[in-house]
Each structure stands twice: as structure tokens, then as C-alpha cells.
């Protein structure tokens, strides 16, 4: 059985694609055969974040419409074994994603022996976003410590609970995970930013991880290498911990407490 993981948020620009790329890469690094699908038809970006933009020949919509088969459209990742990217279409309109078409592609991926299928949702609550969460078994809700992001996350949780297949068919509900991104322990400590516990209290779903705000994310996207591969950076370590927790391991949260820099550090080595 393939497990379908939808990465969603409602709000745009919070780190969905960064997270999709890193979660998919992390699962593949653990040996699971993983596909990551871009659902943002017309505004595809996962290919850039994964660094495969020049190898896109066919896309998700081509497969749905029968212009190409899945094998032709899947791009084998160059950094990580077991990982494949299915890019979104850049030209066609969003309605090309039909429920039957999406279901067919997901079934075929399962048939080909994929363990995990990561669906990178577009922002908003329109058709593309609903299609990305319709078949979800698990959902990773990406939230920034900021009012509009938290409210939109709550909204998208409501949509998962009403429009997913699992909800409609009355099966076991979609397993929801909270991933707080762009977190600044210092600002949270000083009361300028919602803390991750505040966010968890508001949204009332289990916490998968806290990804610190970091320059490493921009470095990663500049190069087309998922952030989880930026070795020895707090961002990569935080994503690796999140993968571990997702797979049922216990890892204490890191990079969430603010340590006051000592005098020496402030004078010489402080950023």
C-alpha cells in the first residue's frame, strides 16, 4: 500500500514546496520508494526546488489526459535514490486536474510499488488545493508563526475534515501533522512571535517538527537542492528529525530554545 501525504497550508509562501521537497527526499533517503507530485498547475515550482527543471518533458496533466504514460513523465532525482518527481503542467488550466484523473495516477504509482506519494498542494482553497488533499492518508500542515498563516491552516484543516475521501467515505480520518516553519526562537522568546506551543494550542493537532528560519533555505532553492540535503544546517537537521518522527521515532525538538549569546560571542562571533 502506498501512503499519500499531502503538504498543505492554505496560505502561500509558508514553505510548502520546500517542505514537500525535503520530506520526499528524507523518506527516499530512508529507503522508501517515493514520488513527489506538484499540484500547482500553471505555477509549477517543485521542479526548480528539486533542481530538475531542465529535464521536464511531460507533466502530470499529460499523464492524466493520456498524452504520455507515467513512466515518461516521472523524473528520476539526481541527488537521491528511490526518488521521483512528477512536475505540474505550466500551460494548461487548473480544471485539467480531474478527480478521476488524479485517482488514476495515484493508483498507478501505487501499482508501480511506490511506498510514499507526497502531494505538494498549491496555495488557496480552490480546485487544485482540494484535489491535492482529496486522496490524502496523512496531511502535513505547514504553518508560519504569524496570524494569517495560523488562521488559514485552521481553515484548510476544516477542508481536510470535510472534503477528503476519507472524510466523505467515513473511513479513519486523515492523520494530521503540524509543521511550524520559519521559526525564530529569539523572537518567540522575546514575545514578538507566536511560539510553537501557541500554534499547537490554537490548531490542536500533533506537532511533527519546528523548522527554524534560516538562510540555508534560500541557498538550497538557489541551487535546486532540497533543504534537507544542506548538511549540518539546523534546517536540514530539523527536517531529518521530522522524518524520524513521521516514521514513529522519538526525537526531542531542537533549535526551538533561545540561548542568550555570551559577551564574547556578541563582541566577536555573533551574527
Amino acid at each position: 500500500m502506498a501512503t499519500i501525504i499531502t503538504v498543505t497550508s492554505g496560505k502561500g509562501g509558508v514553505g510548502k514546496t520546500t517542505t514537500s521537497a525535503s520530506i520526499a527526499t528524507g523518506l527516499a533517503m530512508r529507503g522508501y520508494k517515493t514520488a513527489v507530485i506538484d499540484f500547482d498547475v500553471g505555477l509549477r515550482n517543485l521542479d526548480l526546488i528539486m533542481g530538475c527543471e531542465r529535464r521536464v518533458v511531460y507533466d502530470f496533466v499529460n499523464v492524466i489526459q493520456g498524452d504520455a504514460n507515467l513512466h515518461q513523465a516521472l523524473i528520476k532525482d539526481k541527488n537521491t535514490e528511490n526518488l521521483f518527481v512528477l512536475p505540474a503542467s505550466q500551460t494548461r488550466d487548473k480544471d485539467a486536474l480531474t478527480e478521476e484523473g488524479v485517482e488514476k495516477v495515484l493508483k498507478e504509482l501505487e501499482h508501480q510499488g511506490f511506498d510514499y506519494i507526497v502531494c505538494d498542494s498549491p496555495a488557496g482553497i480552490e480546485h487544485g488545493a482540494v484535489m491535492a488533499l482529496t486522496f490524502a492518508d496523512q496531511a502535513i500542515v505547514v504553518t508560519n508563526p504569524e496570524v494569517s498563516s495560523v488562521r488559514d491552516s485552521d481553515r484548510i484543516l476544516g477542508i481536510i475534515q470535510s472534503k477528503s475521501r476519507r472524510a466523505i467515505e467515513g473511513r479513519e480520518p486523515v492523520k494530521e501533522h503540524l509543521l511550524v516553519t520559519r521559526y525564530s526562537p529569539k523572537r518567540a522568546h522575546e514575545g514578538e512571535m507566536l511560539t510553537y506551543t501557541d500554534i499547537q494550542e490554537l490548531l490542536r493537532i500533533p506537532l511533527l517538527g519546528v523548522i527554524p528560519e534560516s538562510e540555508a533555505v534560500l541557498h538550497a532553492s538557489n541551487q535546486g537542492i532540497p533543504a534537507i540535503l544542506q548538511k549540518d544546517t539546523p534546517v536540514a537537521d530539523a527536517y531529518l528529525d521530522a522524518i524520524g518522527r513521521f516514521l514513529g521515532e522519538e526525537h526531542p525538538l531542537r533549535f526551538v530554545d533561545y540561548e542568550k549569546p555570551g559577551l564574547i560571542k556578541r563582541l566577536f562571533g555573533g551574527k
Binding site: 504569524e146 496570524v147 495560523v150 488562521r151 485552521d154 481553515r155 476544516g158 518567540a188 522575546e190 514575545g191 514578538e192 512571535m193 507566536l194 511560539t195 501557541d198 490554537l202
Partner: peptide, 18 residues
């Protein structure tokens, strides 16, 4: 420190919208 204001506002609006 404005985070506490953010939290209170969110508690209200989220409860209302739910």
C-alpha cells in the same frame, strides 16, 4: 511583545470560524 495579542485574536477568530 505583541505575540500575546496575536494569540488572543486568533483564539477568538478561530473559535468563531469553526
Amino acid at each position: 511583545p505583541t505575540a500575546s495579542v496575536a494569540k488572543e485574536r486568533l483564539q477568538l477568530i478561530i473559535a468563531h470560524e469553526r
